[in-house]
Amino acid sequence: MFVRIVKMSFHQKHIKEFLMMFEKKKALIRASKGCQLLELYQDKNSPEIFFTYSYWNTEQDLENYRNSEFFISTWQQTKLYFNGKPEAWSVDKRESLQ
């Protein structure tokens, strides 16, 4: 399993639109083959900054999702709301303490 972390920064005027879009699409993202977890975070000090964390069984599962029509159309819509370039990392989960 590995984790995909995406940092996105939005224009203030588009935050509500992004959150409404995420609400509508989150279950479909989570239902994508190989997706084990989906989380959305908002920075406490800079509310225009959001992070998504998604856990994937394999890198191929993520690539299949990223090449899907669903992702492509969702990402095209999301990009309209950005006020900066998004950043993304694929990391291996080493430990988790609960």
Rank of each mutant, 00 (worst) to 15 (best):
V3D: 04
V3K: 09
I5F: 08
V6W: 07
K7R: 15
K7D: 05
K7V: 09
M8A: 09
M8V: 10
H14Y: 13
I15R: 08
I15V: 13
F18W: 07
F18D: 02
F18P: 02
L19F: 00
F22N: 03
F22V: 01
E23V: 00
K24W: 00
K26A: 06
K26V: 06
A27M: 10
A27K: 14
A27C: 06
A27W: 07
L28Y: 10
A31D: 12
S32D: 05
G34D: 07
Q36Y: 10
L37K: 15
L37E: 15
L37R: 15
L38A: 05
E39K: 15
E39V: 14
E39H: 13
E39N: 15
L40I: 10
L40V: 08
Q42R: 14
S46H: 14
I49A: 00
F50D: 04
F51P: 02
F51A: 04
F51W: 13
Y53L: 14
S54C: 03
S54P: 02
N57F: 02
E59A: 09
Q60D: 12
Q60A: 12
D61C: 05
D61F: 03
E63L: 12
N64A: 10
N67F: 03
S68K: 05
F71Q: 01
F71D: 02
I72V: 11
T74I: 07
T74N: 14
W75V: 09
Q76R: 14
Q77E: 15
T78R: 05
Y81T: 04
N83K: 12
G84D: 15
G84I: 00
P86V: 01
P86I: 02
P86D: 03
A88S: 09
V91R: 11
D92T: 12
R94P: 00
R94Y: 12
Q98C: 09
